[in-house]
Nucleic acid binder design. Structure first.
Lengths: 145, 145
DNA sequence: TATTATTATTCATTCGACTGAATAATCATT
DNA sequence: AATGATTATTCAGTCGAATGAATAATAATA
């Protein structure tokens, strides 16, 4: 299995739940189809710069948010409209600001967001299901004030 | 000697003067400090998509796309995650590499891929059906190792 | 402190990208 | 067609990144 893919899964896992030992992490990885030994995870954790906290492994707070503006700020400033179509959301922004919004949403890493693709003044947000797309819309609309 | 450096020198050489055979190219390379055999140059020329013209090797006229790397190579190198949502796939890549992956997938022209849209670090892949999206995910995952 | 659990390191192995020598295949010329 | 020139392919070897088993080092706990 691919190293960068494995490390990406590690980052997603430690963000979403509490993994206190490397063996525990190994089991969690296996559950998502990634086989790795404790030796490999020890190296990955060092390369990723993860820290062992009381709640388990985590990214250090500084590197986790590399100088991006707050999600609420970005949305309040740039989000003009939110439209739903099936499991998709179309977000409208002022010209040239779609990527900022998409970037901020990616950082947030909400489970209702499978992924985003930004154009110039439009962000396409892919949700897992139509139902989640709808609730995601409401969540986003609340930022509009 | 580094492969991409060598290929860069090849591109510069064939643009600046007339090199009619691979042996001739080998001599020109040696003059700029790059040692390579005809075997290697044969491979480089194919990878770079050079054509043999009456005036020597040259890049195809800009209409033809500069042949991108092999799909398997691109995916192994850049594919970080594959998520499914209905009939859509969301591929995550390192920043700035989404278009390479989308390009390579477009070239492959698989029937399970209706189309792709690339952002900066995200490729949206549209599949005909949810079922095909799922099997496409497995097909892509196999490239990861 | 002693014992157990957890993590890091060493050593050897595997794997794939890259390359060249030998050679096969193709092209050009007569 | 025959010959010589040119290019492509096969096979084997090298090299470095990645990995795991064994084990050392460290941390946690009784």
């Amino acid at each position: 299995m691919n190293k960068s893919y494995r490390q990406g899964q590690i980052l997603q896992l430690v963000r979403s739940r509490s993994l206190r030992t490397q063996e525990e992490l190994a089991r969690a990885l296996r559950a998502v189809g990634v086989r790795a030994t404790q030796v490999t995870l020890s190296r990955d954790i060092r390369e990723l710069g993860l820290l062992k906290t009381a709640e388990g492994y985590a990214r250090p707070t500084e590197s986790a948010a590399p100088a991006g503006p707050d999600l609420a700020t970005v949305l309040r400033e740039f989000l003009l409209d939110v439209r739903v179509a099936q499991n998709l959301l179309v977000l409208l922004t002022p010209p040239a600001h779609a990527s900022s919004v998409a970037e901020a949403l990616d950082q947030a890493a909400w489970p209702e967001i499978t992924g985003t693709v930004a154009g110039d003044n439009t962000v396409l947000v892919i949700a897992p299901t139509a139902k989640k797309a709808t609730s995601l819309r409401e969540k986003l609309m609340r930022f509009l004030g």
